[in-house]
């Protein structure tokens, strides 16, 4: 650091760079939100110039009220958030325990199971969708109506097949590898059970990977389209991405589309901000492990 002036100038340049990049990342979203308050005609006229980002002209909530009249939006968002939240929670639990077992423990069949899981990373979902549909339509379920056959038109058909996936397990295993192995070994020597080690030693250190895995899973689940389309015929269980199709009629009301897109984007942004606060920020500030 030389003089104060120089330092100040460099600071300004740094912020300018940061701001410029920030603009690049948020302009389509600003466009989306601003547009959702404009009438169709003006929205399209503005879409090609700077007015696309400015809250100018005839602004109103009309698009929102019309969008709510066109489709049961609250229901769709509830369905998606519900399915996503449960899947993410179960996925974090089952995939982290699996990652834990693969990383820290020795057991019969470990290598084979790991290879199989890594291989499934590569299977595109679309490839197995039809066989999975045939399977899901015949599985038994015990619910309020007692034993029933077939999982169609339910929440669980949208949840259970997606709880465990190779990528999440791999994320955990890869992260656990970097944790100091001596800690675990020491705990073992002291007679701690595996479950205790998982709960008391490993999980408290796993903030970043939990956040990453949660976001990844959240996005994958919240954006589900093909699968719910195939297994859900009742509007009552429909998620947001299928609901999006309600707005693509012959003459597209772009203002309503923008309103719907804004509405379904908000829960994800909120979830991210929550995670950021809960995990990432705390990790960054404390500097943690190693």
């Amino acid at each position: 650091m030389t003089t104060n002036d120089n330092h100040g100038l460099r600071l300004i340049v740094r912020y300018l760079v940061l701001i410029l990049i920030a603009l690049m990342f948020c302009f389509p979203l600003v466009f989306m939100i601003i547009s959702s308050f404009k009438p169709d005609q003006q929205l399209l006229l503005d879409s090609g110039n700077i007015r696309a980002f400015l809250p100018v002209g005839d602004l109103s909530f009309d698009n929102y009220s019309e969008a709510f009249a066109r489709a049961p939006i609250a229901l769709f968002i509830f369905n998606s958030v519900f399915v996503t939240a449960i899947t993410v929670t179960l996925s974090l639990l089952l995939c982290s325990t699996a990652g834990f077992a693969f990383t820290f423990m020795e057991w019969r069949g470990r290598k084979l199971a790991l290879s199989i899981i890594l291989a499934t990373l590569i299977v595109p979902f679309q490839a197995i969708a039809i066989p999975l549909l045939l399977l899901a339509s015949k599985l038994p379920w015990i619910g309020m109506d007692g034993l029933t056959w077939g999982w169609l038109n339910s929440y669980h058909v949208q949840i259970i097949p997606f709880i465990a996936d190779g990528l999440t397990i791999y994320l955990f295993a890869q992260y656990f590898k970097d944790l100091p192995g001596e800690l675990i070994e020491a705990a073992r020597v002291e007679g701690a059970s595996w479950w205790q080690i998982y709960r008391k030693v490993v999980m408290p250190l796993s903030g970043p990977v939990l956040a990453t895995a949660a976001i990844l899973k959240f996005l994958a689940m919240y954006n589900q389209y093909l699968w719910p389309l195939m297994v859900v015929q009742e509007e009552g269980y429909r998620p947001v991405m299928v609901g999006l199709q309600y707005f693509f009629q012959l003459n597209i009301a772009w203002g309503e589309v923008m309103a719907y897109l804004s509405l379904i984007t908000v829960p994800v942004l909120a979830f991210y901000l929550y995670l950021q606060k809960a995990f990432i920020a705390s990790i960054a500030s404390t500097g943690v492990k190693g």
């Binding site: 995939c95 325990t97 699996a98 423990m105 069949g109 097949p161 465990a164 595996w194």
Partner: peptide
């Protein structure tokens, strides 16, 4: 314990 912890996820997959 290994199978107990990895089993549920593996079974689902």
């Amino acid at each position: 314990a290994g199978w107990l912890m990895a089993g549920p996820a593996f079974g689902l997959m």
